[in-house]
Write a protein that binds this DNA or RNA. Structure first.
Lengths: 224, 224
DNA sequence: GAAATAGTGTCTATGAGACAGTATATA
DNA sequence: TATATACTGTCTCATAGACACTATTTC
């Protein structure tokens, strides 16, 4: 059977960049510059570049850098959304990736015009099936967050257990007991202490021990 | 930007049909009829049919029926595998789905020539990146199996707790305490008793209570 | 009644949440 | 010294595994 016997489906990639801002889980949206839906806020995405990209994961990382200036972020494949109606241009399949933007990178990102950081609950009414994608990304991160090091990737490289604790609470959307959190997190053994202390940014009192993710550690396979 | 400015990637779908045979987790492979790799055993797959398929999940269900005669099976998207080297025909993306074939359907399936049921551990050396796909499917089912109703879909509609227990052990590849299994499984509340008893097929003694999955129940979202 | 599988009851170890208490910095 | 956050210790309750026990059928 000839592979071009039928009309072909178009392949694209969309990225759901998640971050925390003002103690809320947020998604980064971009003003669309071209049709369809020019001018509307939507997820960052693009077509695969055959000569350059070695995988759809490469495409995701490339559009993140080119369209939002985000580099070296944690990127993971979410799911592929497909069908004749999700894009007015015709039958498409979009491989969706979510990524976690550390707090420190967010200020640099916001310098770019046309980018917006929106709480995930308020990112509705988006074009294409981007509402579904955002919801799926949040659901995935919540599901994995309960037993993974994933929320730590929303923090700068060095952080305190208090900050990490608050991050887990924001991501999971529920209160977490502090003492059991400390126990669990040190048992999981994906953190390492940094010799030297740290102060909280606000008018804090006692400084806390700084930690970082153990280099190269991840519970998850990074296959795209 | 014109959407056909670049050479386009080809979109296809592959399916990993899992089942249990002789107390082992197995995958169904098919002899390839066309190039590349004609005559080799590989996963079932095909191109999206633009006019017919309403999603890649539809493509998965269609090729399952057309190429292996499997209908009404549990199908779930696994991951999308992409790149310039995975298929000798060029840059492709394959959306992989796994499905769970109940024991009762397997005999019908095997009537078809060119189909083979192979223990997952022995399904190696496959063409394309099908080794990776099989491994990813097994890993996903094992991961989800620990807290889901998913292994029950490898059994006929009616089954005993003993059979279900053995199925979980086979899927997870480890011994599971029987009394805690019974406790957990009834608490999870996705089974319902069937009034009337059941005998084990072998030279069994006491018959056991028959159960079925509560209609419509699934812990998981079935988004494609 | 013997055998074999089905199903139940109970003890114990582990782990998480609740919460009180201690420690160490700033102002 | 007052205070706010960092961190620790202990109690209790829930849950899972171990395992012994009972139940019901076939042969």
């Amino acid at each position: 059977m000839d592979k071009h016997e039928f009309e072909r489906a178009d392949l694209m990639v969309d990225v759901i960049p998640l971050t925390i801002m003002e103690d809320r889980l947020c998604v980064v949206l971009a003003d669309r510059v071209s049709e369809p839906y020019a001018g509307r806020r939507a997820l960052i995405g693009g077509y695969v570049h055959i000569p350059d990209d070695r995988s759809c994961g490469d495409t995701a990382r490339r559009v993140l850098e080119q369209k939002a200036g985000m580099r070296d972020v944690y990127v993971e494949q979410l799911s592929t959304f497909s069908g004749p109606d999700r894009d007015p241009r015709g039958w498409t399949a979009s491989v969706a990736y979510y990524c976690l933007i550390p707090l420190t990178s967010i200020e640099d990102v916001l310098i770019r015009p046309g980018l917006h950081v929106v709480p995930v609950g308020e990112a509705t009414g988006l074009p294409f099936d981007h509402d579904t994608m955002v919801a799926a990304a949040v659901s995935r991160v919540r599901g994995k967050g309960a037993y993974s090091d994933l929320p730590a990737r929303l923090l700068p490289q060095e952080f305190s257990l208090g900050e990490l604790h608050r991050t887990y609470e924001i991501v999971l959307g529920e209160r977490i007991d502090e003492s059991s959190f400390r126990r669990k997190i040190v048992e999981r053994d994906f953190l390492e202490q940094i010799d030297g202390l740290m102060k909280t940014v606000e008018g804090a009192k006692r400084p806390s021990q700084a930690y970082r993710l153990r280099p190269g550690f991840s519970i998850f396979d990074r296959r795209f």
